[in-house]
Design a protein around this nucleic acid. Structure first.
Length: 458
DNA sequence: ATGTCC
């Protein structure tokens, strides 16, 4: 009798919602008829609070199962108006990259952004995009190759050393680097492989063995290791080196399969929990207060340290091979997220996806192409750029288009003209596939000052 | 970018 008065509104009042209301009302049609309303409501409240305890219950199990179904993620709307952001070298940036940045500036978590002069289309955030969010990290705002970076060591070089030792130096590169799917037969130990994250974070457990196998290797795509000469013009340089010409080893690579697997795993998680409109779906974020967000942050940092370890080993092997200690070392990553404070002292998550950190006095390396010079730069700390600069020249055409349009003969001629011995590369990395680095540097004069030029040789 | 599709 009493239960005839118990209706959906009573269930809403104690916190039931959605399909669980129907499931509970259905139960009440057959069970608990002789019980008081108070008794039944108290029981239902207990099921609502701890449904896992009623999974096996003879009567309440169907309701418990309904309560245990995870609620579908709420679709999130983009803000109607995008926040303003600064662009350097806008005339050289493809429309698709601009459109992607416009969408990123409409995310509810976005607080600031900027676009670098080498920008081009990527997944979600464009390459060359910088995005500052509040308490949220976007796995595709970091990119697939987490922690991808540049590293350079400078060596004392008698004027004619490189020219007189081309074949020997080339041989040392072939012997001491690994590209594509090749790895070292016996990888060198490194402390990064013993990090506790590899056992504390489930996804990393399965990635440790391959990470060790790939340690010290470079991968593919635009990754390289090269000998070159550095023309150091700045007498007030950080290393106290005399202006002049130095032998330089320059490397570009990232976190190999490990970073790619982390990016894939957490992007999928983010997209499941953060439903965005189709045009923004790859910008799904993880809240840093959630377990997944904190895990990604730790895994991303480990991938960054792993990428750094690979460069360390590359440079260690080649320093040993030429029997010299480096005079100076420069390193910077350009696919990563950092916790940084803005001008108001507010902590933001700054994603740089193919952008060089350029805080005041911060050194970085911006490579040109296989024939064009790279630039060692010192950041000027411009806040409108979120303390960033480009991470290279930027592509003028897609990889597919480059393979179609560029002839091997044309590349040969460019290499010869620049005095570069190429050990190996695809046409998709040909100089013609990239913008003119000198123009790109001209666009970003207010972001960085040039410390030295680096000329690729072999 | 990526044992280049689980």
């Amino acid at each position: 009798m009493e239960n005839q008065k118990l209706n959906g509104n009573d269930l809403l009042a104690i916190g039931f919602e959605g399909k669980a209301i129907g499931a509970a009302l259905q139960l009440l049609q057959t069970a608990y008829k002789g019980k008081t309303k108070e008794h039944t409501l108290a029981l239902l409240k207990k099921v609502l609070d701890t449904p896992e305890q009623y999974r096996e219950h003879p009567v309440l199990a169907p309701l418990a199962e309904e309560l245990l179904v995870p609620a579908p993620a709420e679709p999130l709307a983009l803000k109607p108006d995008q926040q303003a952001y600064a662009i350097w070298g806008a005339e050289g940036i493809e429309v698709r990259a601009l459109n992607q940045m416009d969408i990123a500036m409409r995310l509810p978590v976005t607080r600031a952004g900027a676009l670098m002069p080498d920008a081009h289309q990527g997944y979600g955030l464009p390459i060359g995009g910088v995005l500052a969010t509040e308490n949220a990290v976007i796995p595709y705002g970091v990119g697939v190759d987490i922690g991808c970076r540049m590293a350079m060591t400078l060596y004392d070089m008698p004027a004619t050393f490189l020219e007189q030792n081309r074949e020997r130096l080339k041989g040392l590169l072939v012997d001491n680097t690994r590209f594509g799917r090749a790895t070292f037969q016996k990888p060198k130990e490194h402390a990064v492989i013993d990090r506790p994250e590899f056992r504390d974070i489930p996804i990393l457990k399965g990635l440790k063995d391959r990470a060790f196998e790939q340690l010290g290797s470079s991968g593919g795509g635009n990754h390289f290791v090269e000998w070159g000469t550095v023309e150091l013009a700045d007498a007030q340089n950080e290393w106290g080196l005399a202006p002049g010409t130095y032998l330089a080893l320059l490397s570009h690579s990232g976190s190999r399969g490990m970073g790619a697997a982390i990016a894939g795993h957490y992007t999928k998680l983010a997209m499941e929990g953060c439903m965005l409109p189709q045009e923004a779906r790859h910008l799904a974020w993880l809240d840093l207060d959630t377990e997944a967000g904190q895990e990604y942050w730790l895994a991303m940092n480990l991938a960054g340290d792993y990428a750094s370890a690979c460069h360390q080993q590359i440079h260690e092997r080649l320093a040993a091979a030429i029997g010299q200690q480096p005079l100076a070392r420069i390193e910077n990553h350009h696919n990563f997220a950092w916790k940084e404070k803005d001008a108001q002292g507010r902590e933001l998550i700054v994603h740089r996806k193919g952008a060089t950190p350029a805080g005041k006095g911060v050194l970085g390396i911006i490579p040109g192409s296989m024939t064009a010079p790279g630039f060692i730069v010192r950041g000027k700390g411009l806040s409108a750029s979120l303390n960033s600069a480009s991470h290279g020249a930027g592509r003028t055409m897609s990889r597919t288009k480059a393979k179609e349009l560029i002839s091997p003969e044309a590349v040969q001629q460019q290499l010869q003209q620049a005095g570069v011995d190429l050990i190996g590369s695809g046409l998709d990395e040909a100089p013609g596939a990239y913008k003119d680095i000198r123009k790109v540097m001209a666009f970003q004069q207010e972001l960085v000052e040039v410390v030295a030029l680096s000329y690729p040789r072999l």
